[in-house]
Design a protein around this nucleic acid. Structure first.
Lengths: 342, 342
DNA sequence: ATGAAAGCGCTAACAA
DNA sequence: TTGTTAGCGCTTTCAT
């Protein structure tokens, strides 16, 4: 069982061919099934390969075929539970399909994003891009190579690449309507960095939703903060400092919403009684904290799957890039449910 | 600026050489600095390369040199904040050193772990293995290839591979002593799956610590549960169901401890007054929940850095594998601080 | 200091 | 159905 050849390194296709008494081409075809091979030969080749412990050299194969069976995953922050969940789903799918996953964590740095894209171009067949939305021109070099890209979650303003997004505008509107219905009168919007399309869209949807409910713009106060727990803490502090009359808060992200909830608590403001809070994402921690967080659920698993499948499609059959928008749904929990409700 | 050649694909070294009027070998050497090259040639080559937009083909280079400038990261669950944090640190270091990162998420499946190791063997220079601890024999094929491996966090019982671990036994002991000091009288141990070395070691340390404090073994009750929030919930339910007299709980993981805290709350047991709770890891959520969780802090960033550096050392200079053990420290918070303390 | 050429392991033309 | 052979793009002897 351990016939691993003498001194030298790994077994090559040539070794297998010799051992099976066929040409190297036949060995290759028997293994890959690229063209018909006599049943007897195929049998011998398979046996030899197993016996010698042959492992095809992927690098050589890549050099020859130009394919890598590998995709890149460019993400702003693995530490964020929302993205971590999607990474997990995508990794599972990639593994099933025999693709490797090259992970890049940009830390919201647009420079790293474009740099990694150019670097990945040489070693992956395509990339799933959770963009920090750098100007498209920065990415021209990477895209010039015709690297298939599917943008996910965070929008990416460029023609010719696929996209999988949530209905962020609709979600923002739902949040606004819900907060009004729950008894909010003065509204705080904890937006994300301006460069993030999700932040821009959710904010826009929120403002539109309030307007639709007849809320005067003067009753909407906006603050910008990073997409993180600490961002939420710090953001809400600024918000309540400047506008203590705010009694309903929409955060563009659950991370922020949770941070805001804790900070509000530390500032002596009870959620939901003194402050209604609504987040976005529905990460698992949203339902764990007290009070449980009302939020807009994104179908992250569905988006991850769709994005992966579309990328594989682009890579293997080279179809036309598509854009898919997933609906979001309101998940009502304690953070917007006042006991003293009407 | 856009002299990218006619119709065909990417610029090759040959193109650069021709443009610079030197041999292909000289072009290579000018670019990599492998051997001395006349200053004038080096100048021309560099200019040509820049002008043509030359990007070296990493695959071809790998085939020739046998190096990939890529490392594998095999982890049980990216979704777990503790591991996600380490992934983030490692990714940053890899990027700095010009290594790519191939991520594998095993989902605690030993089969996937060994399968991925064999697959990675062909495309990375080494791997950081957060093992689910399959029998070492399963991995023989992967290791036969002489693939450099550094085990991290979860121990891996095999000679000849590096390791970076926390002092899990010591941590377990500290937890025991602290819970005794905080007023615990009957102890619950929420252990992890038997296959995980961290679970085994922390449990052993905990039992030893109790014994050291003169606690009779009959006052220690043990339950096994997955390393997850839900595992913690479900585990503590079983625990309190069978042994309602338990008034101090040690969970092998913060995730479990937090789940346990919430479940205890739902069962009407106040933490810390009815139940002291101590976790392990010090993930960021530990200090966010109410009551804030007492836990054993691991130096995850330090471990990640050490592991990465050791792996790079093994890959580039092939030194001898080492084992490093990091100390852990008790972080005392509200979950073990009774108001009615002595 | 430079060039010519071999070849890493594999797949895909082209022949037979 | 099978074999022979030409490279994929690069690094690296071996000559010069």
């Amino acid at each position: 069982m351990k016939i691993v050849p003498p001194g030298r390194g790994p077994v090559t296709l040539r070794d297998v061919a010799e051992h099976a008494q066929v040409s190297i081409a036949t060995a290759s075809n028997a293994l890959t099934g690229a063209r018909r091979v006599g049943p007897d030969s195929v049998e011998r080749v398979l046996r030899s390969a197993a016996e010698l412990g042959y492992r095809p050299n992927g690098v050589a194969r890549s050099l020859r075929t130009g394919l890598h069976r590998s995709i890149g995953l460019v993400i702003p922050d693995v530490t964020n539970p929302f993205w971590a969940g999607m990474v997990s789903v995508i990794e599972g799918l990639a593994d099933e399909s025999g693709f490797q996953l090259s992970l890049v964590n940009t830390g919201f740095d647009a420079g790293r994003e474009s740099a990694s894209l150019t670097r990945l171009a040489g070693s992956v067949d395509g990339v799933l891009l959770f963009s920090t939305n750098p100007r498209a021109t920065m990415l021209a070099p990477a895209l010039g190579g015709g690297l298939p890209i599917v943008a996910v979650d965070e929008g990416f303003e460029l023609e010719g690449i696929g996209g999988v997004y949530s209905d962020n505008v609709g979600g923002g509107r739902l949040a606004a309507e819900h907060l009004v219905d729950a008894g909010g009168t003065v509204f705080g919007l904890l937006a994300g960095p301006a460069s993030l399309t999700t932040a821009a869209q959710r904010s826009a949807g929120f403002a539109a939703g309030l307007a639709g409910r007849g809320v005067d713009p003067s009753r909407l106060h906006r603050v910008t903060a990073p997409y993180s727990f600490e961002g939420g803490r710090e953001g809400v502090r600024r918000m309540l400092d400047r506008h203590p009359e705010v009694d309903a808060l929409f955060a563009c992200t659950d991370n922020q919403a949770i941070g805001a909830t804790f900070e509000a608590h530390d500032l002596g403001r009870l959620v939901p009684d003194d402050l209604l809070v609504c987040g976005f994402d529905d990460i698992s921690w949203a339902s764990r904290i007290t009070p449980a967080l009302t939020t807009l659920r994104q179908d992250s698993a569905g988006m991850a799957r769709r994005a992966f499948e579309q990328l594989v499609e682009l890579v293997t059959h080279g179809g036309a890039p598509e854009v898919t928008v997933f609906p979001v749904s309101l998940v009502e929990r304690a953070s917007t449910r006042r006991v003293t409700s009407v």
